[in-house]
């Protein structure tokens, strides 16, 4: 029980440890370094991120993907034609129009 009370006391002391804390100050010559960074311009990664997150780029990419999809769908073979071919093959199979067994070859009627 005493341990639990000690633990709670320690937790509360830790929580209050920020009460007397002083504020952190920016390092010396902060403005000089900031100005130097601004004059240097953006790094490659910052430029890349800005370019990729640019709404114009995102919109253009989506449009391009959509156009490519439309092109792929439009240029794919006619589905009706494939169905027709499937039907023809099914008819041939159903009426045994293909002589493919040995029995068929040996019993050809004149």
């Amino acid at each position: 029980m005493k341990n639990k009370a000690d633990l709670e006391k320690r937790v509360n002391i830790a929580l209050d440890s920020l009460n007397q804390m002083e504020r952190a100050s920016a390092p010396p010559y902060f403005f000089t370094r900031l100005e130097a960074r601004m004059q240097k311009g953006k790094t490659f990664w910052e430029k890349s991120t800005l370019f990729l997150t640019n709404p114009v780029f995102s919109f253009a990419s989506i449009t391009l993907i959509l156009l490519f999809n439309i092109y792929v769908i439009a240029s794919s073979p006619d589905e009706n034609n494939i169905t027709q071919q499937d039907n023809e093959l099914a008819t041939i199979d159903e009426y045994n129009q293909v002589s493919s067994t040995l029995f068929d070859f040996e019993n050809i009627k004149p």
Binding site: A24, S25, A26, R33, L34
Partner: peptide, 24 residues
């Protein structure tokens, strides 16, 4: 505002270099 920005950033990031970078 530099101290205000730096103090907030250091509290959230818990690293002085990262805080300065973010403040910039």
């Amino acid at each position: 505002w530099q101290n205000m920005v730096f103090n907030t950033a250091i509290g959230l990031l818990q690293n002085e270099e990262d805080a300065e970078d973010t403040a910039q």
